[in-house]
Design a protein around this nucleic acid. Sequence first.
RNA 1: GGGCAAUUAGCUCAGUUGGUUAGAGCACUACCUUGACAUGGUAGGGGUCACUGGUUCGAGUCCAGUAUUGCCCACCA
Length: 920
Amino acid sequence: MMDKRYDAKAAEAQWYPFWENNGFFGASPDDGGKPYSVVIPPPNVTGILHMGHALNQTIQDVLVRWHRMRGDNTLWIPGTDHAGIATQNVVEKALRKEGKRRQDLGREKFVERVWEWKKQYGGTIVHQQRKLGNSTDWSRERFTFDEGCSRAVARVFTQLYDEGLVYKGNYIVNWCPRCGTALANDEVEHEPNHGGFWYVRYPVAGSAKGVAGESYKDYVMVATTRPETLPGDTAVAVNPKDDRYAHLVGKTVILPLAGREIPVISDDYVDREFGTGIVKITPAHDPNDFLVGKRHGLAEINIMTDDAHMNELAGAKYCGMDRWECRKAIVADLEAGGYLDHIEEIDNQVGHCYRCHETVESRLSKQWFVKMAPLAKPAIEAVKSGETRFVPERWSKVYFNWMENIQDWCISRQLWWGHRIPAYMLKNPGGADDGRMFVAETPEAALEKARKATGNPALQMEALEQDPDVLDTWFSSWLWPFSTLGWPEKTKDLEYYYPTCDLVTAQDIIFFWVARMMMAGMHFMGRPPFKNIVIHGIVRAADGSKMSKSKGNSLDPLELVEAYSADALRFSMALITSLDCDTKVNKEKFEIGRNFATKIWNAARFMEMNAGKSEGFSFRAFRADSALAEALGPDPALSADDRHLLMAADRACEAMDAHLSRYRIQDGALAVYDFFWTQICDWYVEYAKDVFNAGDAARSRTVLSVLASVYWRALRLLHPYMPFVTEEIAHKLGYLSAAESIMRAPFPRASGEAEKAAWKLSEDAFAYVEAKREMITAGRALRAEYRVPPSRAVAFEIAAADEAAAERLRADEGSLKSALRAESIAVSCGGGELAMPGTLVKLGTIYMPLDGLVDKAAELKRVTAELEKARGFLKGVRAKLANDNFTAHAPAAIVDDQRRKETELSAQIAKLEKLAKLFA
RNA sequence: GGGCAAUUAGCUCAGUUGGUUAGAGCACUACCUUGACAUGGUAGGGGUCACUGGUUCGAGUCCAGUAUUGCCCACCA
């Protein structure tokens, strides 16, 4: 017997291990069939599950479970990302508690320590993912820093290097002079700053030079917030559309104090409105200037040391000064030289180190790069040709926009945790750099190369020193779709499951991850890594703000699982999420899913209870969709309501396939919700009660069979969304044996032609029940409106359109009476007149005695209002029909509709008029 | 500043290629503790679809403009 309440916690604790331990998540190429493969966006190994994961993984699991039930050879690969900076930070933090820095341990020991951490805590998020019910094949769990991924990374780096697509070059990084380390962009905290804005004259070359204290006659005025970087200037720039300065472009100006000549260039980067519209360009000390310099081939003059003091390139006078000291000195000298025009004050943003709060310096350094333009081209083509598709399609615009303006990718990071760059410098016996460098997949291969290059076969490993930097985390995750399938080995998995089918991710990593996977897939596999890229929104707090721990407005998926169940979390997420926009959530939303689980649980209990009264009835007998046909026999006595339910089930099956194949996760959820709740519970179960109460054993058996069969279809339709409760019910009712799982049961399909014919499923039967329900609703509305107490039975007279319809209604008398709580139902034909004085008509079809129940004045008012409304509609309909253009252009069905409406409204108005007289 | 979206009921959102009197959930109101379910049932109220123009027989849906909001990128020398 099923318990009165569904115990979600117990069910979830039971079924997940059941699935995992019995291999229900597993997949193998040997099983054959149509492959359907998905790789999970690997969460950071340091991460904990948040609502974004819950949404992302719900969508994936719905698709994955749906495909698996449809019989596809379905593989969903899980894994985590080693997350260079994030992970290193976590471990460094732990070290700091011990009063140590990573330098105290040394590189090797530190990395060991990170691996230990990973072993101990790295499983957190994958255990949390299990709580959601993810049907990932855990036997294939991967890590972006595991052996296989590392091999793939080394192979990719080496190949790109050999192809000339990897190079070493200057790059500007955020540098903390106090910590002596590079900072990622998100480690720089921008804070408002109130400071000086110095207007400086740069004399045009060849113009009359003044002497100290005089103004120059011919100069350009540059405004800067960082005068101390002036010795590093290598150009001044104006906007190409700026007519004021067009004549200067191509000329040179003299750099004050230094006396060098530097060119005047034009670049879109310059804002005409800001300052003077002329900018000094210091490529070695400003990220934007660096890019401008790259575009124009300018020299990069680094004038500072690592600890933000000036070096000899700043000029002998300033060399050795701290940057702020130097600023004062240079400003004083500019003023003395007559170069300084005036000083303004300005508010801007200045970056600070997130750790020590020192002002961040932009610093030039040698970094590794990947040339992206050649990689981008085929990746753009793959989307243009439709080989890979964005869902929703509009994201392809965002993709193209970025890909067509792609910049080279800086892939080196000054960290210890990550894939070490497989480049080895040759050292001379004295220990000095030889200058030669060898890139190879393994140290041994590098040594081999070095031996050949030097012609010294005795060269030892000690002569090689590996590049100290590691690779950007994305350098391993961009290989994820094929490294997880075994690449660079030629594996069966790779051949069978690549390319993967759907990639499901949020919009914020289209550039970082999706675009790069596209490029890697095209370059190394020759084919894009996925057929569809499904982009969903971000999960936001109820007020629309971003969820964040510090704001305290974030919801914890695990708490929601605890409070409402994993099924509730999944179903509610699916129901409230549209791919097109962000999703706002609050706790109350998850009641929808919880209540739905309760609803289907109770419907199951209702069936179980009644099945017990039907001798020998077994739910197991209905596990095959063909079983109902067998149980009912060749010419079953089905009622219109039975047929309606069977058709509704067919429609739900068709709708689910249509929605999910278009990634309409929300629509699918809505379809199964409505089917279960409205069609099965609200109508058919209520109908079934009447049948069971009537005591006709054969009829009861038929209805129970229809219900059991349709319920089993609904359960499987719902399974991708709510895996746990559906599994629990499937076993509790006995549809499945103990060893089976609903997740491997076939996804339900609409009835076949033979069944449709045997069961006489027709639009006509469907429409009849719809019409009947409208009448019942109208009757109930009358009872409610006139406050007829439930205890008081009433009489209804229903007017049918013709004798055939009347006959059907008479046959249905029992269920109508029950649904309406009526003591009698009279059916007449032809629309009918008012049956008796003091009765009310509504919709022209239902009558009931109202003596002593009605306030006539109030009724008159109400009837008059309805009359007004109906007349208004009729007027509109008639105007439409009178319009020749409408009848000529509109489809016949629409015109017919309007005609029918005209007739209906006329009849309704006639009756309302009679009624008005009655109340007058 | 560049790019991309959004604006429909009190709230969160659906509304497929333009076509009946625009839907759902939550919230609200009334009645119902009916033998599956009060995490429920029945019924009800609530919308000039942001605004202005245009195309069309017909616009929530297509086009242009305006307003407001959000996101991504670049962030101001």
